[in-house]
């Protein structure tokens, strides 16, 4: 009961604010809608019993990505009319982008459709029943064990990737003093 209510609240929040992100023309408001979308997704993880992933979602996306986006928005707009919105953006569609967009939308629609149809028992796949959320228990121990045993290579690779990104950012941000000397 409680989980059902939580699911519908989070799903509504996710979808509604996801639409808002695209529809709203003010970049700042769009960013706020994205914040709502991320919180909704965190709620969805909670209904699945994946507390750890929900907290990571909060930590990384709400605490990191949104703040980075806000900084990026603040640092870009220099004309007064562009400062709070994307009013002066030229129309983005030409034939190439539209074709690729259409293909992407089609693939996305088909894959989502397969899952949704499977849920209602129509179509190709066999009926996938919604799993009982109370089956899931704490996932923290398992995530920790798996990360450091089976998936340790991927774990270390991602840390190398992040280190590379960090060093790259430091090099880009460093003022160029060596050329003047």
């Amino acid at each position: 009961m409680f989980l059902t209510v939580l699911f519908f609240l989070s799903a509504t929040l996710t979808i509604a604010s996801g639409i808002m992100v695209v529809v709203v023309r003010n970049l700042m408001h769009s960013c706020m809608a994205l914040l709502g979308c991320f919180i909704g997704v965190a709620g969805l993880y909670v209904t699945l019993g994946a507390n750890f992933i929900a907290a990571v979602q909060f930590m990384v996306y709400v605490g990191g990505v949104i703040i980075l986006m806000l900084f990026a928005i603040m640092l870009t707009g220099n004309k007064p009319e562009e400062k709070v919105g994307s009013f002066l953006l030229p129309a983005m569609g030409n034939r190439r982008t539209l074709t690729w967009g259409l293909i992407t939308a089609l693939v996305f629609f088909l894959s989502v459709g397969k899952i949704l149809l499977g849920m209602f028992g129509i179509g190709l796949g066999k009926k996938t029943a919604p799993t009982d959320p109370s089956l899931f228990e704490s996932t923290v121990d398992e995530i920790g064990t798996l990360l450091l045993t089976d998936h340790v290579l991927a774990f270390e690779m991602s840390s190398v990737l992040l280190l590379g990104a960090l060093i790259g950012a430091a090099i880009i941000a460093r003022p160029e003093t060596s050329k003047e000397k």
């Binding site: 750890f52 909060f58 709400v62």
Partner: peptide, 15 residues
């Protein structure tokens, strides 16, 4: 995930 939840949620204050 008590303490992790606490740290994650308090990042809203930064925003």
């Amino acid at each position: 995930i008590g303490v992790f939840y606490l740290l994650a949620v308090s990042s809203l204050v930064g925003i």
